[in-house]
Every structure is written in structure tokens, then in C-alpha cells.
Design a binder for these strands. Structure first.
Length: 749
RNA sequence: GGGCCCGUAGCUCAGCAUGGAUAGAGCGACGGCCUUCUAAGCCGUAGGUCGCGGGUUCAAAUCCCGCCGGGCCCGCCA
């Protein structure tokens, strides 16, 4: 088991920190600041430095001038005191502008680093952070209504990298996928599939995605058709009223509006089939202009009120019309893409009310475990799941298990949690419908743990309540629909408890989009209120920002997404094109390389930026095979292996590492020694991108070395041996980093 | 309206938690390097008001306040 003292840099740092502290307590006993020691941003300055001199000077000086002098003096003192001792692994110490700069003695340090890496091998970078601790990592959990797309893929790759990281530092990790089979959307899908006489074709999850998009779009279209009819009816009513008002008006202002209104009103009455939709916008704009310029002051209050009422109506109508237009566009798109499915469904689904009723009825039946419906839903979700696993298998993502939402409902676990909340007195009931609602707003006033979850102080809350500005408080959580079926977040509360109790989890990572921050907070609040405050603390929402398409938002309902399979296909194709140009490779190997490179490229692209950063999908980025990419790392690894292979993998037992005097060699060694730091940082912050960054910098340094200095033909045998071991240490470290990221490792490229 | 995330080179991103030296990579542009361990590479050049404005500090990309821009959330959706 690798502990801290196995890592030379950490050992050195600890030692230096102690020595700094000794000097500090000897000479500045009243200074309470901890000694700082950092890695230099630039090896031109030094390797490590401390700014303790500034901290102490701050306390001792009154003005700027004195401060500078103090800092210099203190730094001098530190340098003098420390230089007097013989510090292992330190070549020299100097004061530069008040910084205490340390220079590593690479003649010794290099050997320590390289040898420790080679002896630890696949354990290099390992920590004993998570011994005997269980972590549940829930990730991917896709809605079973569409294939895994680029958005879900960020989740999968992130969750998978986190599980590799946590395993690496000693946690007992179980990955779970939550199968969200109880959503209303699944019911829409089920309804669509039950109406389709067609045999599924293609990959099952892709087929499901097509059907769902069609059903969802048809349902939207039906909704908007009725809404538009309603708008038209109300438009005519308004115009009629206006006609009368205008007739009665003494001082009719001779405006464009009145004329236009009259004309439109006349036309609509005369020709009911005229394209009235466009008129709405015209009238709206004229009216907006008038109201803005306050040109209606002279007319009667009654008419003015009518006009304002009309304006509000038009504003709403306009919004709806724009939405409707966008759905009509989607409608046309889908009809063109999948005419067979779409037209079938369009014929079968003619009435919105029937659709809604049927869908609701399916949901109730499924929730109650109706055998027929159960069979249908489970079949669909299993098909989807099968497709997901096939896709994820391409990028080597697997799960330790699957949890079906419906099981939580059928087992009564959801009911249990609702009852607990009720018995604890935290449920209120909607006056009209009687649906149960979790009273988070009262909890905010009474329960400190809930305030903490929402990062709100009691003062702030009282202030909001006093101002009667309740809308700016976090909202209460509706737990059930009025038809008695459960809601997603409610079921998720039961699942959270399940994860902790069934798996004895010490920590639960929920890898879920940042758009679900509020429900995740509500969930944790519910745990507190149900009497599980310790559970709430164990649950961490690993939030990542969603992936956006360059053109529009990802929307499964609109069939607008880029399937992960498609991305992998493209990446493979591009990689193959490249590999095809390489000499001396069998077809089989070419294919193998293309696949691995594609996975490397895609995983790298999805992991390379911090999860909190919004990502806009970019083909060039995902298909990047050059620098700053997965393939670049894979290539660097293959190059290192290539050297070792030429040496027939015969490595010397030891070497004279003081022969490694080149700057780039020292840089590589320092970088290698920083790997444990990168791991620790990545785990603590739950950010695999830190490993990506690390690996990239390391590989850049290695490639620079590779290009400039021969290993096998080094000038002396001693140098050759030292470099061979350096290459081996690099290979091990990069391999460990790549396996944490799930980027495939290739011996040859 | 309230809340969360993001804003750093033409583009994609590190650096911000814990303030520290000359703000780093890659892509793209330009100029070089394959008879030498794999050129998916390397070397060099150009490119920055760290969104804006205040404040704290010896020191601010980093901390605080206020704006601006982009995204998301505030559903009996998930």
C-alpha cells in the first residue's frame, strides 16, 4: 500500500515544511501563520518556494517601505539558517525578492523518483484515502426514451472516470445506473409503440428514440392546434368588442392602429380561413408601439383598458404562436426523417385528450403493477437498456448494477418515505387538490441543516419573509400528482435512502446535470426532514454543465441530439483514415488501433474541461487526433514503449541518475513526482480534468525530450541506462493516468 | 423577480478553493525539422485592458461589492 512517505516529493516537501517551521518558531515565535511551500510555476526561478517571509513581514511592518525591507531581511535569515543545515535533496537555497527559493538536487532526487515509480508500478499515485469505505457512484441514468447522446455521454464518461479514481485511492466503489422507467415520458413512448404495427428496425434504443420524438412532437402539435383555435376565437371576440367601443368613442384618434384593426377585423369576419396568425404579430407590434409612446391618452378610460387587455392577450398569443411555429417546424423535420413511423403515428394519434388520458391511465396502471402494462413498459425499457449497454461497452463503461425506479414504488419504499415525512409533520396539502407537498419553506425557518443545504442564513430568510417576498425562497416540493402517482424527485428520495442503507454507503456520488441542482437540494432536505440528517451529508451532487449543440439545445422530444454511437462511428472512421496511411500494419491491427484511438479521442474531449464549464459540442474537438488530445497521449505512450521494445524490455537494475542533467529531463522527473498531487487534487475536487491536464503536460515534456535526446544511442552506457529507466517511469505514470481516464492503452500505433 | 454556473490569446481550455515572481497549454496563422529510438511528433515567431467598474492588500486572474454578457433552474416534467 502506497503511503505518503513512498513519494519522494511529498517526503521532501514535508521535510522542508518542518525546517521552515523550526526557523519560524525559533526566530518569530509570535507568528502563527503556517509555513507556505509551493511548487514553482516556472522552473527558471526554482523548484519549490516559500512566501513565509511575506507573511511574517506583514505582521512586523507598518508601512510599505518597511514591509519590503522586512521581507528581504526575513528571507535572508531563512536562507542563512536553512543553508547552514545539510538538507537532503536540496542543492541550494536563495532569497530572490523576498521569496525563499529551493533548488532540488536532482543527482539524488531523480533516482528516488524513478525508482519509487518503477517499484510501485501500477500502484504509483495510489493513496490510502478510502480504505474500508463504500462509495456508490450513480451515473449515466439515462431516460430510456432516447439513445445515449452527447449530453448523457459527458455524464457517463465523468462518472466512469470518477469511479476509476475513487477505486484507485482505495475506496470500495460500486457504480449503479438508475433506470428511470416511471416517468411520464416512458408512458408516451409506450403509448406510441402500442399504436405502431411496425416491426422495430435498427438498434433498439435508436428505434425507441425515433418513436418517442414522433409521439412527443405529435402531442405538442395537437396541443398547439387546440390552443391556436382558442386564440383565434378570442381574437375575434376582442375585435368585435373593439368595434363596438370604437363606434361609441367620441374622440377616435386617427391612428394607424384603429385603421388596421378595423381592416383586419373586417377581413377576418368576411374571410374566416384567412391566415390570421400573421395578423396577430402585426397588431401586437402596432399596439406595443402605441402603448410605449403613450399615444392613447386622449381616448376614454374604458377603451384604453380594453386596448391594454387586448395587448396582454396578444402578448401571450404571440408567445404561443412562436412556440407553435417551432413545433410545426419540428413536425416537418421528423416527417421527412422518419416518414413511416411518423405518418403512422400521426394517423393513430388524432386527439389530444385521448392521448393524455391514455398516457395517464398507462402510468397509473404501471404504478399499480398491472401485469400487461408492466410487461410492455419493462420490455421497452429493457430494450433501451440493452442499447445503452452496447453503446457504453464501446467505451468500456460498465456498471455494478441497475436500480429500477418502479421497484422502489412497488416495494412500497416510496410510500414509506412519504409517510415518514408526514409523521414528522413536514407535509402540507394543496387546498384544491389535496396533493401532498413538502414544506421546505417552513423547514428553512426551523431547521438549520436545511438552511445549510440552500446556503441561506436565518437573517436572510426572516428578511425575505418580512418583505413578503416568498417567491425568492426556494420552492416547496410537490410529492405526488393528484391522481396518486409519484413524482421523480419523490422516488429519488427513496432511492437515496436505498443507496445508503442497502449498500452501506459512506458516500454517494450522484452524477447529475447542473440543471437538477434544485431537486437535489430538495432531496437532501427531505432526508433531513425524514430524520436522516446523516444520510443527507453523505450525498454529493456531482454537477456538470450540460452539453449544447452549436445550433440549438439538445432536445430528445424534438429528435435533436447527436447520438453517442454516431460520434464514436465518426471518430473511428476518421482514426481509420489516418491509420490506413501507416505502413507495415495488418488490417486487423489497423482496425484495433482506429477503435482505441476513437475512444481515446472522445473520452479525452469529454473529460478535458472542468465539469462546471458549459460545453458546446464541436466535432473538431471530439475528433482531434493531434496535440492536446487522447490520441496524443496514446501516441506518447506508444513511443515510450517503442524505445523499451527496441531495448528488448531489458531494463538495468539501477543507473547513475546524476547523468540526467538536461533541463527537460529534470522537468519530466519533477512532473512525474507530481502525479500523486494530481490524483489527490482530482479526487478531492472530483475533477478528472485535473488528470487530463496533468497527463497532457507530462506527455508534452516527454515528446520534447524524445525528439531532442537519444535514449538507446545515448553517449554513454550510464546515460543510456538512466534514460531507459526514466522512459520506463514515464510509461508507468502515463499508463496509470490513462487508465484512470479510461483512455485505451496501445503498445503500438 | 430570486437563485446557481460560466466569462482568461482569433478558437478550445488550465490557473481561482489556500492571493505571491514574467498569466500557461493546444488549435488556427507564420517560419523551420523526417538517411538518426514511431513526424498522431518537435523547435521557433506572432498573438492577452484575465468581461467592466469599485474595494481589501506590501501583492488580485484569484478575495469582497456592484454591473454587463452567455447558459441553467424556480412544473402535479425528468
Amino acid at each position: 500500500m502506497a503511503l505518503e512517505h513512498d513519494y519522494p516529493l511529498r517526503k521532501l516537501r514535508k521535510n522542508l515544511e518542518n525546517l521552515l517551521l523550526n526557523v519560524q518558531t525559533d526566530f518569530f515565535p509570535n507568528s502563527s501563520v503556517p509555513p507556505s511551500l509551493e511548487i514553482s510555476p516556472n522552473r527558471a526561478f526554482c523548484d519549490l518556494f516559500s512566501t513565509i517571509s511575506f507573511q511574517i513581514a506583514k505582521m512586523k511592518s507598518k508601512n510599505k517601505k518597511e514591509y519590503k525591507r522586512q521581507a528581504m531581511m526575513i528571507a535572508d535569515l531563512f536562507v542563512k539558517e536553512l543553508s547552514a543545515k545539510k538538507i537532503p535533496l536540496i542543492e541550494k537555497i536563495e532569497n530572490k525578492n523576498g521569496y525563499i527559493n529551493f533548488f532540488i538536487d536532482y543527482t539524488k532526487f531523480s533516482g528516488d523518483v524513478i525508482k519509487s515509480i518503477i517499484s510501485l508500478n501500477e500502484k504509483y499515485g495510489h493513496f490510502d484515502l478510502g480504505r474500508n469505505k463504500n462509495v456508490i457512484i450513480e451515473h449515466t441514468s439515462p431516460n430510456p426514451i432516447h439513445p445515449i447522446h452527447i449530453g448523457t455521454a459527458r455524464n457517463s464518461v465523468l462518472g466512469d472516470a470518477l469511479s476509476r479514481l475513487f477505486r484507485f485511492v482505495g475506496y470500495n466503489v460500486k457504480t449503479r445506473m438508475y433506470v428511470d422507467d416511471m416517468g411520464r415520458q416512458v408512458a408516451y413512448l409506450a403509448y406510441g409503440i402500442s399504436k405502431l404495427p411496425l416491426e422495430p428496425y435498427g438498434k433498439k434504443d435508436h428505434w425507441i428514440g425515433m418513436v418517442y420524438s414522433c409521439v412527443a412532437t405529435i402531442s405538442e402539435i395537437l396541443k398547439y392546434e387546440t390552443e391556436l383555435m382558442d386564440i383565434k376565437k378570442r381574437l375575434l371576440e376582442f375585435l368585435n368588442q373593439l368595434d363596438e367601443s370604437l363606434l361609441n368613442e367620441k374622440e377616435i384618434p386617427n391612428t394607424k392602429l384603429i385603421k388596421t384593426l378595423k381592416k383586419i377585423s373586417r377581413n377576418l369576419k368576411r374571410y374566416p380561413t384567412i391566415n390570421w396568425i400573421e395578423k396577430v404579430e402585426i397588431i401586437f407590434n402596432i399596439l406595443k408601439d402605441l402603448l410605449a409612446k403613450n399615444q392613447i391618452n386622449r381616448i376614454s378610460t374604458a377603451l384604453k383598458e380594453k386596448l391594454i387587455g387586448f395587448f396582454d392577450f396578444l402578448k401571450e398569443a404571440n408567445k404561443k404562436i412562436n412556440n407553435a411555429r417551432s413545433w410545426f417546424k419540428v413536425h416537418a423535420e421528423l416527417r421527412e426523417r422518419w416518414p413511416l413511423i411518423f405518418n403512422h403515428l400521426r394517423k393513430k394519434i388524432a386527439d389530444l385528450r385521448t392521448l393524455e388520458n391514455e398516457v395517464s391511465s398507462l402510468m397509473i396502471k404501471y404504478e399499480n403493477g398491472d401485469p400487461e402494462v408492466k410487461k410492455l413498459f419493462r420490455k421497452i425499457c429493457n430494450d433501451a437498456l440493452e442499447g445503452f449497454l452496447e453503446t457504453l461497452n464501446r467505451v468500456s463503461i460498465t456498471f455494478d448494477g441497475f436500480d429500477w425506479e418502479s421497484d422502489l414504488v412497488w416495494d412500497g419504499k416510496v410510500k414509506v418515505i412519504i409517510n415518514r415525512l408526514k409523521n414528522a409533520g413536514w407535509i402540507i396539502y394543496d387546498e384544491e387538490t389535496g396533493v401532498p407537498i413538502l414544506d421546505i419553506r417552513r423547514a428553512l425557518q426551523e431547521v438549520p441543516e436545511v438552511r445549510e443545504i440552500f446556503d441561506l442564513s436565518l437573517e436572510k430568510i426572516s428578511q425575505i419573509i418580512k418583505a413578503n417576498d416568498l417567491d425568492s425562497l426556494p420552492p416547496n416540493l410537490v410529492l405526488m400528482r393528484k391522481d396518486g402517482t409519484t413524482l421523480y424527485t419523490t422516488r429519488d428520495i427513496a432511492y437515496a435512502i436505498e443507496k445508503i442503507s442497502r449498500f452501506k454507503a459512506d458516500l454517494v456520488l450522484n452524477v447529475i446535470g447542473a440543471d437538477q441542482t434544485l431537486p437535489q437540494k430538495q432531496l437532501r432536505s427531505a432526508l433531513v426532514l425524514a430524520g436522516f440528517p446523516d444520510y443527507a451529508k453523505k450525498i454529493i451532487h456531482v454537477a456538470y454543465e450540460l452539453v449544447q449543440l452549436p445550433s440549438a439545445k439538445i432536445s430528445a422530444r424534438r429528435g435533436r441530439f447527436i447520438a453517442f454511437d454516431e460520434i464514436l462511428d465518426e471518430a473511428e472512421e476518421k482514426a481509420y483514415e489516418f491509420v490506413a496511411t501507416l505502413p507495415n500494419k495488418a488490417e486487423e491491427e489497423k482496425l484495433k488501433i482506429a477503435k482505441a484511438v476513437a475512444v481515446g479521442a472522445v473520452r479525452y474531449a469529454l473529460l478535458s474541461s472542468a465539469p462546471t464549464r458549459p460545453m458546446i459540442f464541436d466535432w473538431d474537438r471530439v475528433l482531434n487526433l493531434e496535440s492536446n488530445s487522447g490520441p496524443f497521449l496514446q501516441y506518447s505512450y506508444a513511443r515510450a514503449v517503442s524505445i523499451l521494445r527496441k531495448a528488448e524490455f531489458k531494463l538495468p537494475q539501477d543507473a547513475d541518475f546524476s547523468t540526467l542533467i538536461e533541463d527537460i529531463e529534470k522537468e519530466i522527473i519533477l512532473r512525474l513526482s507530481l502525479f500523486p498531487d494530481a490524483i489527490e487534487s482530482a479526487v478531492r475536487q472530483m475533477r478528472p480534468d485535473i488528470i487530463v491536464e496533468y497527463a497532457n503536460k507530462l506527455a508534452i515534456a516527454f515528446n520534447s525530450f524524445y525528439q531532442r535526446f537519444p535514449v538507446l544511442r545515448a553517449k554513454t552506457t550510464e546515460l543510456r541506462n538512466a534514460r531507459l529507466l526514466l522512459v520506463e517511469a514515464f510509461r508507468i505514470t502515463l499508463r496509470n493516468a490513462l487508465s484512470l481516464l479510461g483512455i485505451p492503452i496501445l503498445e503500438r500505433m
